[in-house]
Amino acid sequence: MHRASSTVSRPSTGRSRVSTAAVAVAVLFLALGVLGFIPDITSRFDDLRLAGQHSGARLFGVFEVSVLHNLVPLVSGVGGLALARTASGARTFLIGGGAVYLVLWVYGLAIEQDSAANFLPVNDADNWLHLGLGIGMIVLGVLTGRRR
């Protein structure tokens, strides 16, 4: 007898599509967080600071990072992996996490990049990344979390 699934389909892993998407996003976040601590991948690594706009380090030479800024995707990744164990948790991670990244995007637009308010720090490239991540995560959460 075939049991009805609560998600659109299950890949061969037995994981729902929304959980698979959440794991993929979480792994991406973990990778980005770790890469922010690796010299040469992060240019001007000697300028890496705990927080604030004075951190001159750039992930891939583009995205302004600090220790605090690198910890954000690491925490997101760990949380995403924990929540991805269930379809509802995965959906919450994708949609809720997407909303958080949209808030980070608004934060980046609202602050002066040379001010003390830029404690993460963020630059224009980070703002575009946060917008893309926010929209992408919400879309993944909605589309992969749909029920038949």
Rank of each mutant, 00 (worst) to 15 (best):
P121H: 00
E112D: 14
A110Y: 13
I38S: 09
L83D: 00
V122C: 09
D40Q: 15
E64Y: 14
I95S: 02
A57P: 01
D114L: 06
G98W: 03
G61C: 08
L71C: 07
A31V: 11
A31N: 04
L81P: 08
G56E: 11
S76I: 09
A117L: 14
A57D: 01
A57M: 02
G56H: 10
A99I: 14
I38N: 08
A31D: 01
S55I: 07
Q53A: 15
G61S: 05
V106R: 11
V34P: 04
P73G: 08
A87T: 01
L94G: 05
R49K: 11
L102C: 03
V103M: 13
L102E: 02
G97H: 05
V100K: 01
L74K: 06
L32M: 10
N118L: 11
A31M: 10
A82G: 12
F45R: 10
A90Q: 04
D46M: 04
V65P: 04
V78P: 12
G56S: 06
V106I: 13
T86S: 03
G33F: 07
L68V: 12
Y101V: 02
L120T: 08
L35G: 04
V122Q: 05
A87V: 02
G80Y: 05
V34H: 01
V65K: 06
D46C: 07
L48A: 07
E64R: 14
R85W: 09
L83G: 04
V100E: 02
A51Q: 13
H69F: 10
V100Y: 04
F45N: 07
R58V: 08
F119V: 11
G80E: 00
Y101D: 03
A51H: 14
S88W: 04
F93V: 00
L104T: 05
R85T: 12
V65Y: 02
V62M: 11
V62D: 06
A84S: 05
G79I: 00
W105Y: 15
